[in-house]
């Protein structure tokens, strides 16, 4: 197995670093996969360090005496493209990470995956640090109350069903 090429350092080392982690992790997945099948080398291309400026929601006009952030990285949304070769051909991933207090709080990877296997591994990787909520049956839990559903006013539901009836008439 060829060693993974180091990620090129640049002035946007944060993004490079993060995307590097993404790409390396992706490469590791492929490396494992390759061990099991044909042992085609995995190459990791230098990360495209195009910095898209941190995207934030409308900035607050007044910032009262707030605790000075002690985080190492600036909070924000960062995007970059990564490229790698897989047995299925050359693939690209467009990675967007949301950083808050030095923690990746959200991530999306636009899969440029050329083949289904890559897409699947990319999906696995994305899921690695993103947790999803799942439902549990109310009846299995000892709850005093429930918040959510009853928000729906009755009249509204009636109106919706009426419209549905009209729409299918």
């Amino acid at each position: 197995m060829d060693p993974i090429q180091p990620i090129k350092k640049s002035n946007t080392s944060l993004i490079a670093g993060i995307v590097g982690v993404v790409v390396i992790a992706g490469a590791v997945i492929f490396a494992v996969k390759n061990n099991q099948s044909n042992s085609q080398p995995v190459a990791v291309a230098p990360v495209d360090t195009t910095n898209t400026a941190p995207v934030t929601t409308p900035a607050s006009s007044t910032t009262p005496a707030d605790v000075a952030p002690t985080s190492k990285y600036k909070d924000g949304t960062y995007s970059a493209d990564g490229y790698y070769s897989s047995p299925g051909g050359n693939d690209a991933v467009h990675v967007t990470l949301v950083l808050k207090n030095d923690i990746v709080t959200d991530a999306t990877v636009t899969s440029g995956a050329g083949d289904g296997t890559s897409a699947r591994y990319q999906a696995m990787f994305i899921g690695g640090y993103k947790a999803y909520v799942v439902g549990q049956d109310i009846s299995t839990l000892n709850l005093t109350k429930v918040s959510g559903s009853s928000l729906t006013p009755r009249g509204f539901n009636d109106a919706v069903s009426k419209i549905k009836t009209q729409a299918t008439a």
Binding site: V133, V134, G135, Q136, D137, I138, S139, L141, N142, L143, T144, K145, V146, S147, G148, S149
Partner: peptide, 19 residues
């Protein structure tokens, strides 16, 4: 304290957490 279920957005028979 009260234990309040957070209703599943698409399934009223389920909750996705508690408060």
């Amino acid at each position: 304290a009260l234990t309040v279920g957070l209703e599943h957005p698409e399934d009223t028979t389920q909750v996705i957490g508690t408060v």
